[in-house]
Computed example of a mutant assay.
Amino acid sequence: MKITPEQRIELHGFNNLTKSLSFNMYDICYTKTKEEREAYLEYIDEQYSAERLSSILKNVSDLIGAHVLNIAKQDYIPQGASVTMLISEGPVVEVPTDTYKETPGPLPNNVVMQLDKSHITVHTYPEFHPNEGISTFRADIDVSTCGEISPLKALNYLIHSFDTDIITMDYRVRGFTRDRNGRKLFIDHDINSIQNYIPDEIKGLYDMIDVNVYQENIFHTKCKLKRFNINNYLFGYTEDKLKPTERDEIIERLQTEMDEIFYGANVPVLKKDKNQG
């Protein structure tokens, strides 16, 4: 069933479809010494503390029209944080005309819809390579909603909330609801790609790969930053402090780290497969 932007499906009862968005971001940094690594982890813990993450999730709940029932948050030792937010149906406002359009969602300035029996979670994972001088920070955010609007409408805001080198996004619609005649509906909106929910100016910054299983209502998109400026990956100093050979070595290590995360495989394995092919 194709849904036009002006249409709304008349349901038998409440919309029982569960729409889940998993948003994973990676920030990569070169930390040459133990002191640099500790300073980077301290910066990450401060920048993405449980308190700030709670603020981000509250804005997400506003964007999808949720009422926050409960927040559990924790900063971990030595590093990392988690926030879990239970949300329920929020204030009912006028249904937006772009409910079914594959367009980027707004930034947090208005409530647009309602949902029920839902949750939002975030977990952070700072880590470092034991020998290569690479530190990596990962944040996993899961938004699960019931109701008419997709959590993809919060994607634009989430991308703006994190300074990220690599993004992995998964969207899935589970369960079924019924129309007024009792016919099962396994999805209530048309979707071609997660990319259609990302603004063009953001898409222009990244290389992107889609893997979609349309018959199962599963959508997957990976993004890797296109342009590489080494100064964005040095912690506490700039490129002019490096010797040319050291600069080239650092760039190679950083780009290898990004490629491995993006393709989900160690670079030596990829090179071997390429030679064999």
Results as ranks from 00 to 15, higher is better:
Q74C: 11
R247D: 03
D259I: 14
H119T: 03
L21D: 00
Y125D: 11
Q74I: 11
C223I: 08
K271V: 12
I218S: 05
Y214S: 15
K101M: 15
G182H: 05
T84A: 13
Y48I: 03
N131I: 10
R180W: 13
S135Q: 09
F235Y: 08
E216K: 12
M1N: 03
G133Y: 01
S55D: 15
E246L: 10
E46V: 10
D75Q: 05
Y197V: 02
F176C: 12
G182A: 10
H123P: 05
Y100T: 14
K222L: 00
Q74H: 11
H123K: 15
S88Y: 08
N70V: 01
N110D: 09
K58M: 10
T145K: 04
T31V: 13
L69H: 10
A50Y: 02
N110I: 13
P244V: 01
R180L: 12
E89F: 04
A81T: 08
K32I: 01
S150M: 07
F128E: 13
K58N: 11
D190G: 10
A66Q: 08
D62E: 14
Y48H: 13
L69R: 06
L63H: 07
A81G: 12
F262D: 04
L63D: 01
P244D: 02
P151Y: 01
E36F: 10
Y30L: 03
E132G: 05
K272M: 09
R138C: 05
S135R: 11
Y48Q: 05
F162I: 07
K274Y: 11
D210R: 12
E257V: 11
V68C: 11
R253D: 05
L254T: 06
Y237S: 09
G277V: 07
M85E: 02
L41Y: 06
Q47N: 09
N59M: 13
N156A: 03
E89L: 03
L17Q: 04
A66S: 13
E148H: 14
P244N: 06
R247P: 11
L41W: 06
A139R: 05
D142R: 11
M169E: 06
I250S: 11
N232G: 13
P199D: 01
P126C: 01
E246Q: 15
Y206M: 06
Q195L: 06
D248P: 07
G175Q: 12
R183W: 00
P199R: 09
I202A: 07
G65I: 00
I251A: 12
H220P: 02
G182N: 07
R8T: 08
T245C: 04
S88K: 06
R8Y: 07
K272N: 14
T136M: 06
T84I: 11
R37A: 03
D273I: 15
D259S: 13
P268N: 02
I209M: 08
C223L: 15
D207K: 09
P91E: 08
H119V: 10
V112L: 14
T99R: 04
D240S: 14
I198W: 03
L242A: 05
E257F: 00
I198H: 03
N231K: 07
L205N: 13
Q74K: 13
I198F: 00
R178G: 04
I77S: 14
H67V: 11
K117P: 00
K73V: 05
V92P: 01
L254D: 02
K19W: 08
D259H: 10
